[in-house]
Amino acid sequence: MSRIRVRFAKLGKVRWTSHRDVARMWERAFRRVQLPVAYSEGFSPRPRLSFGLALPTGCESVAEYLDVEVAGDGVDVDVRLLPDRLSAALPAGVDAVAAAVLPPGSPSLQEVVDSCTWRWSAVAAEGGLPPGEDDLAARAAALLAAPTAVVTRARKGVETTDDIRPGILDLRVLGSVACPESRDSGESGGDPSPAVWVEAELASKPRSLRPAEVMAALSPGLEERDVRRTHQWILRDGARREPLTVGAPDVATAAPHAWERAS
C-alpha cells in the first residue's frame, strides 16, 4: 500500500462546485485513468482518498491537495505521467499540477497544514461605497496592530463571536489593479466595479480562518470577490514549505501548459 499526493488547481466556473463535488470528480477521474485505488472494506466500499482543507464553494485555488492510497505497492503506477493523465480525465478547470509518492508514515494533510495564503479583491457590498486603496491599507495596518479582532458569524444558525486576530498571520493591500494571474481564467465575471486586491496568510489551526471573516473585521461595507487560495503552508522550525514542492526532484510536475493554466 502506498500513498500518492497530488497538487491541483480549481479555476473558473468549476469554482462554484462544493468540496464534496470535487471529491466525486476525483473518484471518477481515478477510475477513468484506471489507477488502482485502494477501497475501504464493508458493504459500501469507498475509494481511499483524503483531502486537506476544504475550499469554500466559490473560491478558486492553485494549491489544493489530496492523498490517494494505491492498492498493492503501486509499482505499476508511473507517477511522472500522472498529472497530465489526471488533468485529461478531470473537468475543465480542475487540473493536476504535481504528484509524488509519499514516504511511508507521512502525516495526513489535515495534520500538517498550518496556514494558507489567500488573495482576493475587495469590492463594495451592495449599496456600499467603493473601497479606497489607502483607506484599506490603513485599516489593514490597524487590524494587524490591534491585540484582538472580534467578529460575529452565524454558525449553523447560531450567532457566535470569535477573536480572529491570532489567525491573521499576515495581511497586505496589493493595490487597485487586478493581478494579471488572477484574471487569467477569463471567467471572473468582468465586473467593472472598483476593486482593491488584498493578500493574507491565514491560520488553518485550530480552525481555518476564511477571507470573508477578515473582510468583516476589515471593513463591513466591503465584500470579497475572486477569492483564490495560492498556497498551503507547513510551518516547521521557523520555516515554511508546501505539502508538495513543484520542481523538487522527487515531485512529478505537469507539462508546462497545465502549470501555466493553474498558476
Binding site: 466556473k13 468549476v14 462554484w16 462546485t17 462544493s18 463535488d21 464553494t57 466559490g58 465586473d191
Partner: peptide, 17 residues
Amino acid sequence: EPILAQVQKPARYIGCE
C-alpha cells in the same frame, strides 16, 4: 456569476458537464 455567491447550490447554474 456575481449572483452565484448569494444563491443555494450555485453549481446548478454553471454547466461544464
